[in-house]
Design a protein around this nucleic acid. Structure first.
Lengths: 337, 337
DNA sequence: CTGTTAGCGCCTTCAC
DNA sequence: GTGAAGGCGCTAACAG
């Protein structure tokens, strides 16, 4: 007989105890005597019993499972967020179902359907870059499962948003450069159609203003911030021959620029200092000369999960959104090895 | 009324058609007339019906879900494997449940339990580094669900293994260095307790032998291959003043060594050529001077999934293990920017 | 403390 | 082509 197919009825028969008592015992109900409980548990192990969660969840109408939708697990930021989510979820007795949208709206819709039909208790989602309408979240909230949006906020019904304060982070980054003596700071910016990059630029401008530096349009770049872009911008900057600081809205461009500068005999951070948003652990090891903005990724996962579970277990909880702060991570800029 | 809670009975009542017919229609059974089928589907959409997979799976004893256990999703190699798994699984109508063991045996055991109690149809797993006994897989195979081990092989019952040919890859890497004129090639090796690193060393030795080079114990390192290790080994090598090539069993150590060398005025690959196992996309951008071994990560995911699904759907299929080849990725070693 | 009964939502014989 | 009936495995009243 296949052990895995053991049911509470098998235990029930083997012991001459009713299956409902077996169920209670296995759920550690206080309404079963310790002796029978012990007997039942022993038998369960002997028969290799494994609860059928499908049946249990169907009956209780609760899965103790949280659906997590992420654009890409390979991005360090998101995988760290997931770590935070998992830690909090497991701690509180929830399982986690991870799905990647790969930035595709179509795929996001499919995922939502699957999660709904699997009746997850709640949803944590960072929407895809293609997502502009939110109708596909409706079936979710309709069946009473709460949603928390993390990193990429969303005005859907009264859902909670957990985000990072991009303005503040950029402000601090730029200010750091200024306080270290930079007078002409370039900004490597991302697509201004995206709120996130807008805010990062605003923070940069605000810091300049506060410290009485002039905003120069020529020092403001806007592109995809790829490695190629980074090198190209560095080249442009060198030609201008006055830039002494760079604030980059992501790390790929920052690192690429840094390498270009070094290869062309520019000392970093002595000649040109660089602060990059985002921090990838590998690049940090490789480029200790780079100061980065350390995003609260793990913390974001924890916060979002805590809020979500609060909503799941207490439907009338508040839907306060959360804005998290980042920290500047200034590394040892001397040769490390 | 909550839309999400619509059941086939609601549709049944609304239409005056029996629920069994509704069920058949929604499963696109040929035994329902097209007219009633259309009516039912229309009504289902109108009511926002979402199938309850819990009930369906319970009844059919099939979840169309594959459990995937991975040591760490943040490692590029694994997240790419997952992409391959997802692609194949979705194509064949399966869902994927991703779990991270974080290299912990205890956690791996818990995951297995959850997956079993959720009755996934099959398991794809890369075991944790702590895993040496395999008893915890028993409940899995006991209830008839097949297992495929990927990347880290396992002699458990007659399960399929999908792995990479480490010997061959190392051989090719080392040979590449030799063919490019290297005479004294150092080997940055990982813990020799792990089969994988053993095989990588064997491939290195075999290549030396084939080309009549002497194996020198002093050039063979064994450590965790961290960034620190990489720099330390590079330092040692420089002192020896004869090494002209490095074959590293991972990329972290390779990149770190490369940077140390460059910082000390050594030209790469002109003075010392480096080939590193594993390739991280970011480091590839940063260090075009590095030749890497391009592992068939995506392909591995696809292969493993294809095998698993074959076993799920045809219980008596063969359990042939698969060994995949890697490719040397020689990058433009000139200054890229 | 333990047993009885019923049903979660779906699918699948078996009839007609 | 459709309806009736039963059960997947578990839990939650309600009794006793």
């Amino acid at each position: 007989m296949l052990k895995g197919k053991t049911t509470i009825h098998d235990i029930s028969k083997a012991l001459g105890i009713d299956s409902s008592t077996v169920s209670r015992a296995l759920n550690n109900s206080p309404r079963v005597s310790n002796t029978t409980k012990a007997k039942i548990i022993a038998k369960a192990e002997e028969l290799g019993y494994q609860r059928n969660s499908l049946a249990s969840n169907l009956r209780t109408n609760k899965t103790h499972t949280i659906g997590v939708v992420v654009p890409r697990i390979s991005r360090n930021f998101f995988s760290t967020v997931i770590s935070g989510i998992e830690e909090t979820a497991y701690e509180k007795g929830y399982n986690v179902l991870i799905c990647q949208s790969l930035e595709s709206l179509e795929r996001e819709k499919k995922i939502i359907n699957t999660l709904v039909s699997n009746r997850v208790d709640g949803l944590l989602i960072s929407i895809s870059m293609q997502t502009t309408s939110f109708q596909h979240f409706k079936p979710f909230s309709d069946y009473g499962a709460p949603i928390v949006f993390y990193d990429r906020p969303c005005n859907f019904e009264h859902c909670t948003n957990v985000t990072i304060d991009d303005f503040e982070a950029s402000f601090k980054a730029t200010e750091h450069l200024i306080l270290n003596g930079c007078k002409h700071i370039a900004h490597f910016g991302g697509p201004q159609a995206i709120t996130l990059y807008q805010n990062r630029k605003k923070g940069y401008i605000a810091a300049l203003k506060k410290h009485g530096l002039v905003f120069e349009d020529a020092l403001c770049f806007e592109n995809q911030l790829s490695a190629k872009d980074g090198a190209a911008m560095a080249k442009t900057i060198l030609k201008m021959d006055k830039v002494d600081g760079i604030y980059s809205a992501n790390d790929t461009a920052a690192i690429s620029a840094l390498r270009y500068l070094k290869n062309n005999g520019v000392a970093v951070p002595e000649d040109i200092a660089i602060v990059g948003f985002n921090n990838d652990p590998i690049s940090a090891v490789i480029e200790p000369a780079l100061t980065t903005i350390n995003q609260p990724d793990f913390e974001m996962g924890k916060q979002a999960t805590t809020r979500l579970i609060a909503h799941i277990e207490n439907k009338n909880g508040p839907t306060n959104s959360v804005i998290l702060s980042s920290e500047l991570l200034v590394r040892d800029s001397t040769k490390r090895f």
